[in-house]
Simulated assay, not measured.
Amino acid sequence: MAADHPPVSPPAKPSVEQPVPALPENLTQILSRAVGTGQEEVISFLCNPQVWPHAPASVEILETHMSLVFFAGDRVYKIKRAIQLKHMDMRSLAARQHFCRREVELNRLLAADVYLGCASVTRAPDGTLAIDGEGEAIEPLVVMRRLDTSQGLDQRILQDRVSAAEIDRLCALLSNFYARQPPADISGEEFLAIWHEIVGRVRTSLTDPRFALEKHLVDPPITLLTHFLETHEQMLLDLVDHGRIVDGHGDLKPEHIVMGDKLLVIDRLEFDDRLRMADPFAEITFLGLECERLGAPWIGPRLIDGLAQRLGRRPPDELLRFYRCYQACLRARLSIEHRLDPSPRTPDRWPRQTRDYLMRALPSAQP
C-alpha cells in the first residue's frame, strides 16, 4: 500500500553508537497471542524505536480486540489483527488493507486532522523490513496524530472535570453530524430483520450454559427485548420511513471523545457498515450508559434532551427504554464472549463486567 500520509524526514545519522532501546513490557504476552497469525515479525519490528523515520524515544503498544496500536512519539500507528471473528475475517492482507483505508476514510469526517493516512511495512528483496520502504507491502498501517489521552471524556469523568456546557458543545457537534448524514440505504423489512438477528445473538450468547449467567439477571431484559420486537414493529418501521436511520458512528464510547478547545470524535466503526446504521438516539443512549458506568449518570439524560431539541424530535419513552436495555445486553454479550478467546486478556474481568451491564439493563426491563 502506498503511503498517503505527510512525509517525515529521516533522523540524522548518529555520530556515536546508540544504546539498544528497551522493548515494551507487554510485548511477550502480545506475541504469544499472535502466534499463528503471521504477524509476529511485524509486531517485533514495529516495537523497535530505531526503525521509525521520526526516531521516537520509545514505543508503547496497546492491544485491543481488533487492533494493535503503537504509540511512537507524536504519532500513533495501528495494525489490524489477523484474526477471524464470527462476523469478520481479517486474516488476509487484502482485507486488512481495505479496512485500514476504510477507517481513515470514515474518521476524517469527525477528526480530519487526526487521521493522517495509511502506510505499510515493506519487505525488501533481501528480507529487510522498513516502513514505506522498497519491496513488497506486507502489513498496512493506519497513521494518526497522537492525542492527549487525559482529555478523553472517560478520563475527564473520572477526574470530575466535565461541565454541563462541555456536554452541550458535544451534543451540538453530534447533532450537526447526524443531521448531515443521509438516511441509510435500507428498507423497513431489512431493518427489522437486523434487529431480530442482533437480539437473537444476544439471547443465544447470554443464555449459553457455558457462561452460567444467573437467570434473574438475563431473563428480564431478554424478555423486554423480545416483547418489544413483537409488539412495536411499526415504531421501528416508522424510523426508516421518516429517514431517521443514518450512517452513524457505530461505537460511541467516552474514550472515543476528546474534549478541549476542539472537540474530536474518533474510532468510528469501519468493519461492518450495518453496525453504523442507527437512530442517533440509540448511539446517544449507549454513550450515556458508558458515562453512567464511569460515575456521571447526569450526562445521558442531558445528551438526550439536547439531541431532541436540536433534531426537533424525541423518541417515545418505550423506545429509549428498549435502546438502553439492548445496549446494556449487547455489551454484556461482548464481554462474556471474551471467555471463548483462546488466550483471553484479563479473564477474571469479563464475568464481572457482564453482570454489571446486566444489572444496568434490569431497571429498563421492569414493567
Rank of each mutant, 00 (worst) to 15 (best):
D89Y: 05
M90N: 01
M90F: 08
R91M: 00
L93H: 02
A94K: 08
A95N: 07
A95P: 01
R96Q: 02
R96G: 00
H98T: 13
H98I: 07
F99W: 11
C100E: 02
R101Y: 12
R101G: 12
R101L: 11
R101T: 12
E103V: 14
V104W: 01
E105C: 10
L106K: 01
N107G: 12
L109I: 15
L109C: 12
L110Y: 09
A111N: 04
D113C: 10
Y115P: 02
L116T: 06
G117C: 09
G117K: 03
A119N: 07
V121Q: 02
T122M: 05
D126Y: 06
G127T: 06
T128M: 11
L129V: 05
I131M: 05
D132Y: 06
G133C: 05
E134A: 15
G135E: 07
E136A: 15
A137E: 06
I138S: 04
P140G: 02
L141F: 11
V142R: 02
V143T: 04
M144P: 00
R145G: 13
L147W: 03
T149Y: 14
T149E: 15
S150I: 13
G152L: 15
L153W: 01
L153I: 04
L153M: 04
L153H: 01
D154F: 04
Q155F: 05
Q155W: 05
Q155R: 11
R156P: 04
Q159D: 07
Q159T: 09
Q159N: 11
D160R: 15
D160E: 14
R161S: 14
R161V: 03
R161T: 06
V162K: 02
S163T: 13
A164V: 13
A165Q: 14
